[in-house]
Design a protein around this nucleic acid. Sequence first.
DNA 1: ATGTCGCATTCCATGCGA
Length: 261
Amino acid sequence: MLIATWNVNSIRQRLPHLLRWLDEAKPDIVCLQELKCLDDAFPRLEVEAAGYHVETLGQKTFNGVALLSRSSPEEVRRGLPGDETDTQARYLEGMFPAGRGVVRVASIYLPNGNPVASDKYPYKLAFMERLRRHAKALLRLEEPLVLAGDYNVIPEPIDASDPAAWVTDALFVPQTRAAFRGLLALGLTEAFRACDPAPGRYSFWDYQAGAFQKNNGIRIDHLLLSPQAADALVGCRIDKQTRGWDKPSDHVPVVAELALG
DNA sequence: ATGTCGCATTCCATGCGA
């Protein structure tokens, strides 16, 4: 079973890329982020015609997350628990059939948090703490669980081509990295790094200054696996080629293969 | 090279978020 995450940076702008990539990669479950539209504006019919069930949590202009799946979810949760006043569309979770069992998958668009001196940064940290608490509760279910999305976190220096350029950035400051380690400390496995220890592997390249041509990127899109999912991990890859297509997203898909029977 | 993109409104120009 292939489970993927992709920040598409506007689903309406990226629909041709999404359809091409679905056809080529044939993923079973896809977590999308940055839809940048309301639910009614999501190109549902086109994605359904490609063979996918669609669940969305949209928002006008910003944010917005979706779950695409070959099989319909048995349960869906909209929004991250822990703050009823949070109106930003950043979390969508579903439980899907997988072999003889199930897999629970969340699509997460974690706040960027820049600039660190603004109120955006405490919001990011609070969101990460809410995510940690919710993940802790989900882990008690002892299910295969995949928390996938744009984490807006550079976990380690190896995950940036120029780490020095990010030292004061909300994606890389020590408190952000500590919060990410707090998630891993629950017993979650970060799928890509578990499979590939090499430097130079990125999931995002800025649109500016020829960043992609120079491979001046960062790795901020992650799939975090529960022990039951990690036990089934076969491999994980980054579909870098989509960044070279015409009018690309600044992020590319990250795809994990799980042997779930 | 201080080099881009997508969205919305202030609507062919600008501000915001990334």
